[in-house]
């Protein structure tokens, strides 16, 4: 599990310091703090970023929104935004609204509000609302990461690292090469959200990352994954083999 990388775009040091303090306390990684529009773009392209916290006004100009707008134009570059603002000015909000999805954080803010805003931004961005605060699920699944809520903070896991997923009632055991952990999500939900060509159901409670398969022993109904993980293969789900490119 990795920390979430946060980019802060804020021209006032006191504000950014307060933010950094809260984020670090909650195990977020602050990639950098940009004081203006140009720095922001530079930092954005140089680093892997998961979430951006943007002050609407940089040096009295609404450059924060401009930044969000310019990021939104680039395909696949956009990330979840949290807008920081001290005014409820309708015009600013109307403009910011166009850079959907968005989340707002009103100044002055406290620790809980920051964390809440970040979670909302992730949920809205990946269009899976009411996840982190509900009682049925704690994971938002994007194309390449799982965003998992652990205690107060979010964590992420790269989908490519996953070997297989084992379902136990409302929980899923995620097994990567390095670790093993539990998330709260139903099997139907997780199989809907994951790429069906990549993750294959081999058993009624097992989903396997096809990229990690080393060997399939049909005689023993066994699949061997990287790291020598042995998985049972049920007859019902054998069909997937036909779709695989088998080297001869």
């Amino acid at each position: 599990m990795d920390n979430i990388n946060v980019l802060i775009i804020e021209d006032t040091p006191e504000q950014s310091d307060a933010l950094i303090k809260v984020l670090l306390e909650n195990n977020y990684t602050v990639v950098g703090v940009a004081r203006n529009f140009t720095d922001a773009l530079k930092l954005f392209y140089e680093n892997t970023i998961d979430i951006i916290i943007i002050d609407v006004f940089l040096d009295g100009k609404p450059d924060g929104i401009t930044f969000a707008e310019s990021i939104n134009i680039i395909p696949n570059a956009s990330k979840p935004f949290v807008f920081l603002t001290s005014s409820k000015d309708r015009q600013i909000f109307e403009r910011a609204k166009l850079t959907k999805p968005f989340s707002f954080l009103m100044k002055p803010f406290n620790e809980l509000e920051i964390l809440y805003a970040i979670e909302m931004a992730v949920e809205k961005f990946y269009e899976q609302t009411n996840v982190f605060l509900g009682e049925e699920q704690d994971t938002v699944i994007s194309d390449d990461h799982l965003f998992i809520k652990k205690k107060n903070a979010l964590k992420k896991v790269s989908i490519n690292d996953i070997l297989y997923i084992e379902v136990e009632e409302r929980y899923c055991n995620i097994i990567t090469e390095k670790e093993k952990f539990v998330i709260l999500i139903s099997l139907t939900k997780i199989s809907d959200l994951l790429d069906k060509n990549k993750f294959i159901k081999t058993h009624r409670n097992t989903i396997v990352n096809a990229d990690k398969i080393e060997e399939i022993i049909l005689a023993d109904n066994l699949i061997i994954l990287k790291g020598n993980h042995k998985i049972n293969l049920s007859d019902t789900y054998k069909d997937f083999i036909k779709k695989m490119n088998i080297l001869s």
Binding site: K88, D89, F93, Y116, T129, N130
Partner: peptide, 11 residues
């Protein structure tokens, strides 16, 4: 009537 008002899902 300058207040921005946007209803959404709130926990």
């Amino acid at each position: 009537k300058q207040l921005y008002f946007h209803k959404e899902s709130v926990h």
